[in-house]
Design a protein around this nucleic acid. Sequence first.
DNA 1: AATTGCGGGCGCG
DNA 2: CGCGCCCGCAATT
Length: 400
Amino acid sequence: MLKGADEAAVEQENSASQHGEMTSWDINDIKLPQDVRQIDWFQEWPDSYVKHIYSSEDKNAQRHHSSWAMRNTNNHNSRILKKSCLGVVVCGNDCSTSDGRKIYLRPAICDKARQKQQRKCCPNCNGPLKLLSCRGHGGYPVTNFWRHEGQFIFFQSKGAHDHPRPETKLEAEARRSIHKAHTAFSASSIRLKRIQEIESLTGAMPMPEALPLLLSKPDAYMIPANFRGHLSKSSQEPTLSSCSGQLLYPRAAGEDEGSGEALTWSRSPSLGRIPSAERLCSGPAVPCTAPSHQHCAHFSTQRVLPVTKGGHVSFRPNTGPLGDGSCGEKSLLTYSSSCLSLPPYPAPQSGPCSRVSGAQPHHQLLAPLRGSEGDMSEGGAQVGLNYCHNDMVFNLYPLR
DNA sequence: AATTGCGGGCGCG
DNA sequence: CGCGCCCGCAATT
């Protein structure tokens, strides 16, 4: 990443966790700070040498998620989980999609799957794929460290990614399922004719895989973060942002919410493109790049914890839909589904984002998409989520 | 079929 | 000793 931006990024990120008190801890310290007053909102794209303190209730933190493709690394230390970056898979021909975007696929985490992946072809031009390794940490991959300590999860990142962002996990999954759907479709006897018909009607027809995915422009990871942040925090990256909001405190919601938060995001090092599935759920594909979307963005990078006398953090599991550690997923899903089941609105501002933000102070209150796969039994929500999924699968072409 | 975490083991500086 | 990395295993998803 760029130097200047980098430094700003570091500064800003640090301020997220530091804010006066703890700047000084290192993941390897024997004792980590106990008097944490501010915990951070989950960061999907941690970059540079940043540290974050998450709530131990934060699902994404619990799962050690990242939108970077991080694989487990054995550091022979069971107390500190270490992961290293796999980089990004690009097109060997350096092709661009019709709208000028580059191919930035998410490297498979599993070695075997990754090897298989590299034998596949570019979804856009059918050329060879190439794995762009991460060398952002002294020539070696960026490393992330996770450590659970009491009611917090400490995160530390070492190195600055020297490559574009890959698809998020959800994007990759969405692409896979779309691909699957497509191949299934292709398998039917009618299909060839159909496709040809469609092609002749629409002119050039992109590979189905090319749709969701790679909407990254060459400079994609330079787009203002608030934009991305907003979107991913809202509808699309439920997996990553999902339950983070459960510990939301009124104060954080009220104060950190507004312009200040937006500012925080805009200065955030998180730069990137917009998760595709998000687009799929929130409206017509392209609009995500619409500037107006930025207004939807207001995410807090951190949460201010009510600290009781003695510096003890009262971790009252928030009331409301987010309640207990179980994440109040059902309720969340209600929001999620209301978001996801919305018909694609042409007007971004009135789309799922604002609707959701209207219902809840933070987009992170949204439930994980995965909820639709598993722990979901509420009919309504299920329907909503399925709707979304179907929407994704079947409305893709129209979107183009 | 992939992801995730764990841990043994090896080589390097 | 720290680090990067390979490998296989097991539990989940």
